[in-house]
Design a protein around this nucleic acid. Structure first.
Lengths: 242, 242
DNA sequence: TCGTGCCAACTCGTCAGATGAGTTCAGGCT
DNA sequence: AGCCTGAACTCATCTGACGAGTTGGCACGA
Protein backbone atom coordinates (compact mmCIF):
# COMPACT_ATOMS: atom_id res chain seq x y z
CA UNK A 1 0.00 0.00 0.00
CA UNK A 2 2.62 2.51 -0.91
CA UNK A 3 0.45 4.61 -3.14
CA UNK A 4 -3.21 5.35 -2.59
CA UNK A 5 -4.94 3.24 -5.20
CA UNK A 6 -8.42 4.60 -5.70
CA UNK A 7 -10.44 6.15 -2.94
CA UNK A 8 -14.05 5.29 -3.71
CA UNK A 9 -15.40 8.37 -2.07
CA UNK A 10 -13.55 11.65 -1.95
CA UNK A 11 -15.52 14.84 -2.33
CA UNK A 12 -12.43 16.82 -1.30
CA UNK A 13 -12.44 19.63 -3.78
CA UNK A 14 -16.12 20.12 -3.87
CA UNK A 15 -16.87 19.99 -0.16
CA UNK A 16 -14.25 21.16 2.31
CA UNK A 17 -14.85 19.31 5.56
CA UNK A 18 -14.25 22.17 7.91
CA UNK A 19 -15.11 25.84 7.87
CA UNK A 20 -11.48 26.88 7.98
CA UNK A 21 -10.75 24.66 5.02
CA UNK A 22 -13.46 26.52 3.22
CA UNK A 23 -11.72 29.76 4.06
CA UNK A 24 -8.48 28.40 2.67
CA UNK A 25 -10.21 27.25 -0.50
CA UNK A 26 -11.90 30.61 -0.91
CA UNK A 27 -8.72 32.60 -0.50
CA UNK A 28 -6.80 30.24 -2.73
CA UNK A 29 -9.39 30.81 -5.39
CA UNK A 30 -9.07 34.56 -5.10
CA UNK A 31 -5.31 34.38 -5.37
CA UNK A 32 -5.15 31.85 -8.17
CA UNK A 33 -7.70 33.51 -10.37
CA UNK A 34 -5.87 36.80 -10.09
CA UNK A 35 -8.36 38.73 -8.00
CA UNK A 36 -5.46 39.39 -5.68
CA UNK A 37 -2.03 39.62 -7.26
CA UNK A 38 1.33 39.44 -5.54
CA UNK A 39 1.78 42.48 -3.33
CA UNK A 40 -1.91 43.11 -2.85
CA UNK A 41 -3.40 43.17 0.59
CA UNK A 42 -6.16 40.77 1.46
CA UNK A 43 -9.23 42.07 3.26
CA UNK A 44 -8.81 42.23 7.01
CA UNK A 45 -9.67 39.23 9.11
CA UNK A 46 -12.77 40.94 10.41
CA UNK A 47 -13.98 41.74 6.91
CA UNK A 48 -13.40 38.21 5.67
CA UNK A 49 -15.19 36.88 8.72
CA UNK A 50 -18.25 38.87 7.78
CA UNK A 51 -18.06 38.01 4.08
CA UNK A 52 -17.66 34.30 4.70
CA UNK A 53 -20.00 34.26 7.65
CA UNK A 54 -17.57 32.60 10.02
CA UNK A 55 -15.86 33.85 13.11
CA UNK A 56 -12.70 35.84 12.91
CA UNK A 57 -10.90 32.97 14.57
CA UNK A 58 -11.78 30.63 11.74
CA UNK A 59 -10.52 33.15 9.23
CA UNK A 60 -7.31 33.43 11.18
CA UNK A 61 -6.72 29.71 10.99
CA UNK A 62 -7.20 29.75 7.27
CA UNK A 63 -4.90 32.69 6.75
CA UNK A 64 -2.39 31.04 9.00
CA UNK A 65 -2.45 27.96 6.78
CA UNK A 66 -1.82 30.02 3.71
CA UNK A 67 1.01 31.78 5.48
CA UNK A 68 2.57 28.43 6.37
CA UNK A 69 2.40 27.54 2.71
CA UNK A 70 4.05 30.79 1.71
CA UNK A 71 1.10 32.18 -0.23
CA UNK A 72 0.60 35.17 2.02
CA UNK A 73 2.61 37.03 4.60
CA UNK A 74 1.15 38.34 7.78
CA UNK A 75 2.63 40.84 10.15
CA UNK A 76 1.31 42.46 13.23
CA UNK A 77 -0.87 45.49 12.56
CA UNK A 78 -0.98 45.05 8.79
CA UNK A 79 -3.38 43.19 6.60
CA UNK A 80 -2.17 39.93 5.05
CA UNK A 81 -0.20 40.47 1.87
CA UNK A 82 -0.17 38.09 -1.07
CA UNK A 83 3.36 36.99 -1.85
CA UNK A 84 4.84 36.24 -5.23
CA UNK A 85 5.70 32.64 -5.97
CA UNK A 86 8.80 32.01 -3.95
CA UNK A 87 11.05 29.28 -2.65
CA UNK A 88 10.08 29.34 1.01
CA UNK A 89 7.85 26.31 0.70
CA UNK A 90 10.55 24.37 -1.09
CA UNK A 91 13.19 25.49 1.34
CA UNK A 92 10.94 24.38 4.12
CA UNK A 93 10.35 20.99 2.59
CA UNK A 94 13.97 20.26 1.83
CA UNK A 95 15.25 21.40 5.16
CA UNK A 96 12.55 19.45 6.96
CA UNK A 97 13.40 16.33 5.01
CA UNK A 98 17.07 16.63 5.74
CA UNK A 99 16.52 17.42 9.40
CA UNK A 100 14.40 14.32 9.75
CA UNK A 101 16.83 12.11 7.89
CA UNK A 102 20.43 13.20 7.49
CA UNK A 103 20.84 10.69 4.68
CA UNK A 104 18.64 12.93 2.60
CA UNK A 105 21.53 15.33 2.19
CA UNK A 106 23.27 13.15 -0.34
CA UNK A 107 20.03 12.50 -2.15
CA UNK A 108 19.46 16.21 -2.30
CA UNK A 109 22.91 16.73 -3.72
CA UNK A 110 22.11 14.17 -6.37
CA UNK A 111 18.97 16.04 -7.34
CA UNK A 112 20.79 19.31 -7.43
CA UNK A 113 23.29 17.75 -9.76
CA UNK A 114 20.58 16.61 -12.13
CA UNK A 115 18.90 19.97 -12.14
CA UNK A 116 21.94 22.16 -12.33
CA UNK A 117 23.45 20.13 -15.13
CA UNK A 118 20.28 20.73 -17.04
CA UNK A 119 20.32 24.37 -16.04
CA UNK A 120 23.81 24.76 -17.44
CA UNK A 121 22.64 23.22 -20.67
CA UNK A 122 19.73 25.62 -20.89
CA UNK A 123 21.87 28.55 -19.86
CA UNK A 124 24.23 27.89 -22.73
CA UNK A 125 21.25 28.25 -25.01
CA UNK A 126 19.33 31.04 -23.33
CA UNK A 127 21.70 33.23 -21.35
CA UNK A 128 21.59 36.92 -22.24
CA UNK A 129 24.83 38.90 -22.53
CA UNK A 130 24.18 40.80 -19.26
CA UNK A 131 23.62 37.49 -17.51
CA UNK A 132 26.91 36.20 -18.84
CA UNK A 133 28.63 39.37 -17.67
CA UNK A 134 27.15 38.90 -14.26
CA UNK A 135 28.45 35.34 -14.14
CA UNK A 136 31.89 36.58 -15.08
CA UNK A 137 31.74 39.12 -12.27
CA UNK A 138 30.85 36.45 -9.74
CA UNK A 139 33.71 34.33 -10.96
CA UNK A 140 36.07 37.25 -10.56
CA UNK A 141 34.78 37.78 -7.04
CA UNK A 142 35.55 34.18 -6.25
CA UNK A 143 39.04 34.57 -7.61
CA UNK A 144 39.65 37.67 -5.52
CA UNK A 145 38.08 36.30 -2.35
CA UNK A 146 40.40 36.15 0.62
CA UNK A 147 38.10 34.62 3.20
CA UNK A 148 35.90 31.64 2.70
CA UNK A 149 32.72 33.48 3.49
CA UNK A 150 33.18 35.84 0.58
CA UNK A 151 34.23 32.92 -1.56
CA UNK A 152 31.19 30.86 -0.73
CA UNK A 153 28.89 33.82 -1.24
CA UNK A 154 30.29 34.46 -4.71
CA UNK A 155 30.15 30.76 -5.45
CA UNK A 156 26.47 30.64 -4.60
CA UNK A 157 25.81 33.75 -6.66
CA UNK A 158 27.49 32.08 -9.59
CA UNK A 159 25.38 28.98 -9.35
CA UNK A 160 22.26 30.97 -8.79
CA UNK A 161 23.14 33.09 -11.80
CA UNK A 162 23.28 29.99 -13.97
CA UNK A 163 19.85 28.84 -12.92
CA UNK A 164 18.52 32.30 -13.69
CA UNK A 165 20.24 32.29 -17.05
CA UNK A 166 18.52 29.02 -17.83
CA UNK A 167 15.36 31.04 -18.22
CA UNK A 168 13.43 28.52 -16.19
CA UNK A 169 12.15 30.00 -12.96
CA UNK A 170 11.08 26.65 -11.62
CA UNK A 171 14.69 25.55 -11.74
CA UNK A 172 15.77 28.72 -9.96
CA UNK A 173 13.27 28.17 -7.22
CA UNK A 174 14.18 24.54 -6.73
CA UNK A 175 17.88 25.20 -6.50
CA UNK A 176 17.24 28.15 -4.24
CA UNK A 177 15.17 25.93 -2.01
CA UNK A 178 17.94 23.38 -1.78
CA UNK A 179 20.64 25.92 -1.03
CA UNK A 180 20.00 26.24 2.68
CA UNK A 181 20.14 22.58 3.61
CA UNK A 182 23.17 22.09 1.41
CA UNK A 183 25.04 25.08 2.77
CA UNK A 184 25.86 23.28 5.97
CA UNK A 185 27.42 20.46 4.07
CA UNK A 186 29.22 22.82 1.78
CA UNK A 187 30.82 24.71 4.60
CA UNK A 188 32.04 21.49 6.12
CA UNK A 189 33.42 20.45 2.81
CA UNK A 190 35.19 23.75 2.33
CA UNK A 191 36.72 23.43 5.74
CA UNK A 192 38.08 20.11 4.70
CA UNK A 193 39.51 21.81 1.69
CA UNK A 194 41.19 24.62 3.50
CA UNK A 195 42.72 22.34 6.04
CA UNK A 196 43.44 19.28 3.93
CA UNK A 197 43.92 19.85 0.25
CA UNK A 198 43.67 23.62 -0.06
CA UNK A 199 43.30 23.38 -3.79
CA UNK A 200 40.76 26.07 -4.45
CA UNK A 201 42.39 26.49 -7.81
CA UNK A 202 40.69 23.36 -9.12
CA UNK A 203 37.33 24.65 -8.07
CA UNK A 204 37.93 27.94 -9.81
CA UNK A 205 39.06 26.21 -12.96
CA UNK A 206 35.91 24.19 -13.01
CA UNK A 207 33.80 27.28 -12.71
CA UNK A 208 35.81 28.95 -15.41
CA UNK A 209 35.22 26.05 -17.75
CA UNK A 210 31.49 26.16 -17.18
CA UNK A 211 31.31 29.85 -17.95
CA UNK A 212 33.47 29.33 -21.00
CA UNK A 213 31.13 26.71 -22.41
CA UNK A 214 28.09 28.84 -21.72
CA UNK A 215 29.68 31.81 -23.41
CA UNK A 216 30.50 29.61 -26.38
CA UNK A 217 26.85 28.49 -26.47
CA UNK A 218 28.05 24.93 -26.15
CA UNK A 219 25.13 23.30 -24.37
CA UNK A 220 26.50 19.79 -24.21
CA UNK A 221 29.87 21.10 -23.08
CA UNK A 222 28.32 23.23 -20.38
CA UNK A 223 26.36 20.26 -19.11
CA UNK A 224 29.50 18.16 -19.06
CA UNK A 225 31.47 20.83 -17.23
CA UNK A 226 28.76 21.32 -14.65
CA UNK A 227 28.44 17.61 -14.11
CA UNK A 228 32.14 17.33 -13.51
CA UNK A 229 32.10 20.25 -11.12
CA UNK A 230 29.26 18.87 -9.06
CA UNK A 231 30.91 15.47 -8.98
CA UNK A 232 33.90 17.17 -7.40
CA UNK A 233 31.68 18.88 -4.89
CA UNK A 234 30.03 15.64 -3.98
CA UNK A 235 33.35 13.88 -3.59
CA UNK A 236 34.59 16.61 -1.27
CA UNK A 237 31.41 16.47 0.74
CA UNK A 238 31.71 12.73 1.13
CA UNK A 239 35.34 13.04 2.10
CA UNK A 240 34.55 15.60 4.77
CA UNK A 241 32.26 13.05 6.38
CA UNK A 242 34.62 10.09 6.24
CA UNK B 1 17.41 43.59 -4.69
CA UNK B 2 16.59 40.14 -5.91
CA UNK B 3 18.29 38.30 -3.11
CA UNK B 4 18.38 39.37 0.50
CA UNK B 5 21.93 40.54 0.97
CA UNK B 6 22.68 40.60 4.67
CA UNK B 7 20.11 41.45 7.24
CA UNK B 8 21.98 43.15 10.06
CA UNK B 9 19.55 42.02 12.69
CA UNK B 10 17.66 38.80 12.51
CA UNK B 11 17.14 36.85 15.68
CA UNK B 12 14.70 34.58 13.87
CA UNK B 13 15.78 31.18 15.06
CA UNK B 14 16.49 32.22 18.57
CA UNK B 15 13.46 34.37 19.21
CA UNK B 16 10.18 33.58 17.48
CA UNK B 17 8.22 36.81 17.25
CA UNK B 18 4.83 35.41 18.08
CA UNK B 19 3.59 32.86 20.54
CA UNK B 20 2.18 30.63 17.85
CA UNK B 21 5.52 30.69 16.07
CA UNK B 22 7.01 29.47 19.31
CA UNK B 23 4.54 26.62 19.31
CA UNK B 24 5.51 25.75 15.76
CA UNK B 25 9.19 25.86 16.65
CA UNK B 26 8.62 23.70 19.70
CA UNK B 27 6.67 21.06 17.83
CA UNK B 28 9.11 21.09 14.95
CA UNK B 29 11.87 20.44 17.41
CA UNK B 30 10.03 17.49 18.90
CA UNK B 31 9.41 16.03 15.48
CA UNK B 32 12.85 16.63 14.05
CA UNK B 33 14.77 15.30 17.02
CA UNK B 34 12.75 12.12 16.92
CA UNK B 35 10.74 12.57 20.11
CA UNK B 36 7.71 11.97 17.95
CA UNK B 37 8.16 9.68 14.98
CA UNK B 38 5.88 9.29 11.99
CA UNK B 39 2.60 7.77 13.09
CA UNK B 40 2.85 8.96 16.66
CA UNK B 41 0.16 11.13 18.15
CA UNK B 42 1.05 14.53 19.48
CA UNK B 43 -0.31 15.58 22.85
CA UNK B 44 -3.77 17.06 22.68
CA UNK B 45 -4.20 20.75 22.09
CA UNK B 46 -5.27 21.26 25.67
CA UNK B 47 -2.21 19.48 27.01
CA UNK B 48 0.14 21.42 24.80
CA UNK B 49 -1.56 24.61 25.86
CA UNK B 50 -0.76 23.83 29.49
CA UNK B 51 2.79 22.70 28.76
CA UNK B 52 3.63 25.76 26.69
CA UNK B 53 1.62 28.11 28.85
CA UNK B 54 -0.41 29.54 26.00
CA UNK B 55 -4.08 29.28 25.19
CA UNK B 56 -5.46 26.33 23.31
CA UNK B 57 -6.25 28.71 20.50
CA UNK B 58 -2.63 29.61 20.05
CA UNK B 59 -1.68 25.95 20.02
CA UNK B 60 -4.30 25.35 17.38
CA UNK B 61 -2.79 27.96 15.12
CA UNK B 62 0.60 26.36 15.42
CA UNK B 63 -0.71 22.88 14.75
CA UNK B 64 -2.66 24.24 11.86
CA UNK B 65 0.56 25.64 10.38
CA UNK B 66 2.29 22.31 10.69
CA UNK B 67 -0.69 20.64 9.07
CA UNK B 68 -0.52 23.06 6.16
CA UNK B 69 3.12 22.12 5.77
CA UNK B 70 2.28 18.45 5.79
CA UNK B 71 4.18 17.62 8.96
CA UNK B 72 1.11 16.50 10.88
CA UNK B 73 -2.40 15.44 10.10
CA UNK B 74 -5.38 16.49 12.12
CA UNK B 75 -8.85 15.04 12.07
CA UNK B 76 -11.88 15.75 14.12
CA UNK B 77 -11.97 13.94 17.43
CA UNK B 78 -8.44 12.56 17.20
CA UNK B 79 -5.15 13.95 18.34
CA UNK B 80 -2.78 15.29 15.69
CA UNK B 81 -0.69 12.57 14.09
CA UNK B 82 2.85 13.05 12.83
CA UNK B 83 3.12 12.14 9.16
CA UNK B 84 6.07 10.57 7.37
CA UNK B 85 7.94 12.73 4.91
CA UNK B 86 5.64 12.93 1.92
CA UNK B 87 5.03 14.81 -1.27
CA UNK B 88 2.01 16.85 -0.25
CA UNK B 89 4.03 19.98 0.29
CA UNK B 90 5.72 19.63 -3.07
CA UNK B 91 2.48 18.81 -4.80
CA UNK B 92 1.02 21.88 -3.22
CA UNK B 93 3.87 24.09 -4.33
CA UNK B 94 3.94 22.89 -7.90
CA UNK B 95 0.22 23.02 -8.39
CA UNK B 96 0.08 26.48 -6.83
CA UNK B 97 2.82 27.70 -9.11
CA UNK B 98 1.15 26.34 -12.20
CA UNK B 99 -2.25 27.63 -11.21
CA UNK B 100 -0.82 31.09 -10.74
CA UNK B 101 1.10 31.02 -14.00
CA UNK B 102 0.13 28.55 -16.68
CA UNK B 103 3.51 29.06 -18.34
CA UNK B 104 5.01 27.19 -15.43
CA UNK B 105 3.71 23.98 -16.89
CA UNK B 106 6.39 23.84 -19.53
CA UNK B 107 9.04 24.80 -17.03
CA UNK B 108 7.85 22.01 -14.82
CA UNK B 109 8.04 19.59 -17.68
CA UNK B 110 11.60 20.70 -18.26
CA UNK B 111 12.48 20.01 -14.64
CA UNK B 112 10.81 16.65 -14.75
CA UNK B 113 12.87 15.83 -17.77
CA UNK B 114 16.09 16.71 -15.99
CA UNK B 115 15.19 14.72 -12.93
CA UNK B 116 13.75 11.68 -14.62
CA UNK B 117 16.66 11.39 -17.00
CA UNK B 118 18.90 11.29 -14.00
CA UNK B 119 16.55 8.85 -12.29
CA UNK B 120 16.78 6.51 -15.25
CA UNK B 121 20.54 6.69 -15.06
CA UNK B 122 20.51 5.86 -11.37
CA UNK B 123 17.91 3.16 -11.87
CA UNK B 124 20.14 1.40 -14.37
CA UNK B 125 22.74 1.26 -11.64
CA UNK B 126 20.62 0.57 -8.59
CA UNK B 127 17.42 -1.18 -9.58
CA UNK B 128 16.81 -4.48 -7.81
CA UNK B 129 15.48 -7.47 -9.76
CA UNK B 130 12.01 -7.20 -8.18
CA UNK B 131 11.88 -3.56 -9.16
CA UNK B 132 12.77 -4.44 -12.73
CA UNK B 133 10.07 -7.10 -12.74
CA UNK B 134 7.60 -4.54 -11.51
CA UNK B 135 8.56 -2.19 -14.32
CA UNK B 136 8.07 -4.99 -16.83
CA UNK B 137 4.62 -5.65 -15.41
CA UNK B 138 3.66 -2.00 -15.78
CA UNK B 139 4.88 -2.01 -19.33
CA UNK B 140 2.78 -5.07 -20.06
CA UNK B 141 -0.22 -3.37 -18.52
CA UNK B 142 0.32 -0.44 -20.86
CA UNK B 143 0.50 -2.78 -23.81
CA UNK B 144 -2.73 -4.51 -22.82
CA UNK B 145 -4.60 -1.34 -21.96
CA UNK B 146 -7.72 -0.75 -23.98
CA UNK B 147 -8.86 2.57 -22.56
CA UNK B 148 -6.71 5.58 -22.01
CA UNK B 149 -7.36 5.74 -18.32
CA UNK B 150 -5.82 2.35 -17.74
CA UNK B 151 -3.03 3.24 -20.11
CA UNK B 152 -2.21 6.47 -18.34
CA UNK B 153 -2.36 4.82 -14.95
CA UNK B 154 0.12 2.14 -16.01
CA UNK B 155 2.27 4.79 -17.64
CA UNK B 156 2.44 6.72 -14.41
CA UNK B 157 3.22 3.58 -12.44
CA UNK B 158 6.05 2.86 -14.82
CA UNK B 159 7.58 6.29 -14.38
CA UNK B 160 7.06 6.20 -10.68
CA UNK B 161 8.68 2.80 -10.57
CA UNK B 162 11.78 4.18 -12.22
CA UNK B 163 12.14 6.94 -9.67
CA UNK B 164 11.78 4.36 -6.93
CA UNK B 165 14.34 2.15 -8.57
CA UNK B 166 16.75 5.05 -8.59
CA UNK B 167 17.07 4.50 -4.88
CA UNK B 168 16.74 8.22 -4.27
CA UNK B 169 13.61 9.03 -2.32
CA UNK B 170 14.00 12.74 -2.89
CA UNK B 171 13.65 12.13 -6.60
CA UNK B 172 10.56 10.01 -6.02
CA UNK B 173 8.97 12.71 -3.95
CA UNK B 174 9.76 15.46 -6.42
CA UNK B 175 8.39 13.57 -9.39
CA UNK B 176 5.38 12.53 -7.37
CA UNK B 177 4.79 16.16 -6.47
CA UNK B 178 4.92 17.17 -10.11
CA UNK B 179 2.59 14.43 -11.28
CA UNK B 180 -0.66 16.17 -10.44
CA UNK B 181 -0.08 19.44 -12.24
CA UNK B 182 1.32 17.60 -15.23
CA UNK B 183 -1.51 15.12 -15.43
CA UNK B 184 -3.84 17.70 -16.89
CA UNK B 185 -1.43 18.42 -19.69
CA UNK B 186 -0.78 14.76 -20.23
CA UNK B 187 -4.42 13.94 -20.69
CA UNK B 188 -4.80 16.70 -23.22
CA UNK B 189 -1.77 15.43 -25.04
CA UNK B 190 -3.11 11.89 -25.09
CA UNK B 191 -6.36 13.12 -26.49
CA UNK B 192 -4.44 14.71 -29.28
CA UNK B 193 -2.80 11.39 -29.87
CA UNK B 194 -5.93 9.35 -29.97
CA UNK B 195 -7.66 11.72 -32.33
CA UNK B 196 -4.79 12.87 -34.48
CA UNK B 197 -1.86 10.53 -34.78
CA UNK B 198 -3.00 7.50 -32.82
CA UNK B 199 0.50 6.14 -32.67
CA UNK B 200 0.62 4.75 -29.18
CA UNK B 201 3.05 2.22 -30.53
CA UNK B 202 5.87 4.75 -30.54
CA UNK B 203 5.22 5.56 -26.93
CA UNK B 204 5.33 1.91 -26.01
CA UNK B 205 8.52 1.38 -27.91
CA UNK B 206 10.14 4.22 -26.06
CA UNK B 207 9.18 2.74 -22.74
CA UNK B 208 10.40 -0.62 -23.84
CA UNK B 209 13.77 0.81 -24.75
CA UNK B 210 14.13 2.47 -21.39
CA UNK B 211 13.40 -0.73 -19.54
CA UNK B 212 15.78 -2.59 -21.79
CA UNK B 213 18.63 -0.24 -21.00
CA UNK B 214 17.92 -0.41 -17.30
CA UNK B 215 17.85 -4.17 -17.38
CA UNK B 216 21.14 -4.13 -19.24
CA UNK B 217 22.59 -1.84 -16.56
CA UNK B 218 23.41 0.66 -19.26
CA UNK B 219 23.20 3.94 -17.35
CA UNK B 220 24.09 6.24 -20.20
CA UNK B 221 21.75 4.39 -22.53
CA UNK B 222 18.89 4.57 -20.07
CA UNK B 223 19.42 8.28 -19.67
CA UNK B 224 19.44 8.73 -23.42
CA UNK B 225 16.29 6.68 -23.87
CA UNK B 226 14.47 8.58 -21.15
CA UNK B 227 15.55 11.89 -22.58
CA UNK B 228 14.21 10.90 -25.94
CA UNK B 229 10.96 9.71 -24.46
CA UNK B 230 10.37 12.89 -22.53
CA UNK B 231 11.25 14.97 -25.54
CA UNK B 232 8.44 13.16 -27.36
CA UNK B 233 6.10 13.84 -24.48
CA UNK B 234 6.96 17.49 -24.53
CA UNK B 235 6.49 17.75 -28.26
CA UNK B 236 3.06 16.18 -27.98
CA UNK B 237 2.13 18.47 -25.16
CA UNK B 238 3.17 21.50 -27.15
CA UNK B 239 1.30 20.25 -30.17
CA UNK B 240 -1.87 19.79 -28.19
CA UNK B 241 -1.72 23.46 -27.29
CA UNK B 242 -1.03 24.80 -30.74
C1' DT C 1 -17.44 -16.82 29.88
C1' DC C 2 -17.95 -14.17 25.98
C1' DG C 3 -19.95 -10.97 22.87
C1' DT C 4 -22.51 -6.75 22.18
C1' DG C 5 -24.23 -2.32 22.74
C1' DC C 6 -24.25 1.93 25.02
C1' DC C 7 -22.42 5.77 27.65
C1' DA C 8 -18.84 8.76 29.46
C1' DA C 9 -14.51 10.94 28.75
C1' DC C 10 -11.50 12.92 25.35
C1' DT C 11 -10.54 15.76 21.65
C1' DC C 12 -11.07 18.63 17.81
C1' DG C 13 -14.03 22.58 15.42
C1' DT C 14 -16.13 26.82 16.04
C1' DC C 15 -18.12 30.75 18.16
C1' DA C 16 -18.58 35.30 21.06
C1' DG C 17 -16.53 38.91 23.42
C1' DA C 18 -12.56 41.38 25.19
C1' DT C 19 -7.81 43.32 25.80
C1' DG C 20 -3.17 44.56 24.23
C1' DA C 21 0.05 46.01 20.87
C1' DG C 22 1.82 47.47 16.23
C1' DT C 23 0.76 50.41 11.96
C1' DT C 24 -1.01 54.21 9.42
C1' DC C 25 -2.47 58.61 8.38
C1' DA C 26 -4.79 62.85 8.99
C1' DG C 27 -4.59 67.10 11.50
C1' DG C 28 -2.70 70.45 14.51
C1' DC C 29 1.11 72.79 16.59
C1' DT C 30 5.59 74.99 16.15
C1' DA D 1 7.22 73.22 5.81
C1' DG D 2 8.25 69.88 9.28
C1' DC D 3 7.39 67.37 13.36
C1' DC D 4 4.21 65.46 16.83
C1' DT D 5 0.20 63.35 18.37
C1' DG D 6 -3.84 60.75 18.60
C1' DA D 7 -7.65 58.21 16.57
C1' DA D 8 -8.82 54.34 13.65
C1' DC D 9 -7.39 49.92 11.92
C1' DT D 10 -5.61 45.53 12.32
C1' DC D 11 -3.30 41.65 13.99
C1' DA D 12 -2.10 38.65 18.46
C1' DT D 13 -3.83 36.38 22.22
C1' DC D 14 -6.85 35.08 26.07
C1' DT D 15 -11.11 33.28 28.56
C1' DG D 16 -15.09 30.65 28.52
C1' DA D 17 -18.40 27.86 26.19
C1' DC D 18 -20.87 24.51 23.20
C1' DG D 19 -21.29 21.02 19.46
C1' DA D 20 -19.69 16.98 17.16
C1' DG D 21 -16.63 12.93 16.18
C1' DT D 22 -13.79 9.13 18.40
C1' DT D 23 -12.63 5.74 21.73
C1' DG D 24 -12.45 2.69 25.49
C1' DG D 25 -14.61 0.55 29.28
C1' DC D 26 -18.54 -1.10 31.71
C1' DA D 27 -22.90 -3.27 32.22
C1' DC D 28 -26.08 -6.34 30.39
C1' DG D 29 -27.70 -10.40 28.15
C1' DA D 30 -26.81 -14.98 25.83
Amino acid sequence: MATTPADPDRPERTQPRTASDAVVAHLEELIFDGSYAAGDSLPSEAELAIQLKVSRLTVREGVRSLAARGLVEVSHGRRPVVTATNATQLRDFFSSSVRRDAGGLLELLEVRLAIEVHAAELAARNATPPQIDSLAADLQAMTDATDEETFTAADMRFHHGITEASGNRMISLLVEGMADPLRVGRLKSLHGYLQGTPDLGDLLDEHRLILEKITARDAAGAARAMRKHLATTRRDLLRSFG
